[in-house]
Design a binder for these strands. Sequence first.
DNA 1: TATGGTTGCCTTACGTCGTAAGGCGGTCGG
DNA 2: CCGACCGCCTTACGACGTAAGGCAACCATA
Lengths: 233, 233
Amino acid sequence: MGAGLGARKPREPLSRERALAAAIALVDAEGLAALTMRRLAAELGVEAMSLYHHLPGKQGLLDGLAEAVIAEIHAAVAAVDSTLEGADWRNRLRQRFLAARAVMLRHPWAPALLGSRPTIPTGLYTYYDGIIATLRDGGFSYRIAHRALHAFGSLALGFAQEVFRPASAGGQTDVEAAEEELAAMAAQLPHLTAMVAAEVHAAEDPTLGWCDSQVEFEFTLDLLFDGLDQARD
Amino acid sequence: MGAGLGARKPREPLSRERALAAAIALVDAEGLAALTMRRLAAELGVEAMSLYHHLPGKQGLLDGLAEAVIAEIHAAVAAVDSTLEGADWRNRLRQRFLAARAVMLRHPWAPALLGSRPTIPTGLYTYYDGIIATLRDGGFSYRIAHRALHAFGSLALGFAQEVFRPASAGGQTDVEAAEEELAAMAAQLPHLTAMVAAEVHAAEDPTLGWCDSQVEFEFTLDLLFDGLDQARD
DNA sequence: TATGGTTGCCTTACGTCGTAAGGCGGTCGG
DNA sequence: CCGACCGCCTTACGACGTAAGGCAACCATA
């Protein structure tokens, strides 16, 4: 441990940190599917097997990525939460979740990555502890706090975990194909097509597509907050 | 088309249906990761490349699985919904979602599969159309119906899409390791550990583990229903 | 009954992946 | 000066999905 710090050699000695940073850059640029041991090594000017001196295999690399994202959430949340000392639980949670969301928007691959981890990244326990603390301060029992955590689900991490993503998550825009197919079977879907028509006409308020996730995100959040407020007893 | 139906040969001629049925059986038994073209072929007493005469590749196979699950949901939902002709929107949706959930519990791999499809399985449009119809009958505008769909998210398909699954989804029980690790850092997580302690003590009501998903599922559902009821205007 | 097309399955092979095992050259303590 | 060690590379194996083509049994027709 503690190799000589003098960077006298032309090649930076390659470390876990450098590998993870390169991995994040790669995945940000080309998506999760592009993250390959060989590819990552090439990105670092190194052979694939060299990575194994610093990372415990592919799964360990993904775990490292997950922890890195969570650390980023931690930082973002801490920055926001410190400015809300006196606020009520509702606003504190709201700002917290929106801060987490900002991180997720920077790393669109993060939801899929977190969902793919077989074990809970350890940093998350601390994150959830903070949420429970806020709920307790708001007067909730542990029971309701527990259920609230489940109700929030992925919203607490800043993403709606949409089962079918419109155009993101590394995939190309196959919205056209879907829309075309939808038009073909429109006759059988009266309510769906009516809804789409109504929503498109009413789109003079802040919506970005025909499904602006930000608006939906906050709407669901308020729905849950309202419900929890009444469930508090 | 229309090959002779006389099953005179010792080997059933292999078809898309037979392949999909075998795939579902395989995945039910061993999880999504076990579903390999070679493995599926072996299960059918056939070579891998033979599958390509009936299925358009691996992605097509997964699409077929997704459609099969959705068809199963359709059947289950239709059976339940026909017995609720006069009921209000709330109960109709509730029973609908719970019926879908029953299908998901039979196929624990289905959430991950549906989440992995890059395009929306066509059968789902019909499913969502029925939900919108129920909401419209309940007096909701298309706008609120739209937002309700997003708020429900995966609940409409019967699963909570928990970001981190406790022990399911093909993985082994690493609850022990997680719990051990949690105990180690308990000192830093006062609220989390307190909650776990409180919830374990209060577990005389119908809970199956220290996180019975069924209870959480219905709790969240009611939370959303309550919120929507007020958002109806 | 002979025939030619079609259908259904198999064989072989390529390029990708993660990773186990061991080699080789530089740096450093004695 | 010299041996140990550390960091990186080389080689190789067994998965995976799938492209390309071969072969044998079936069918309607003559």
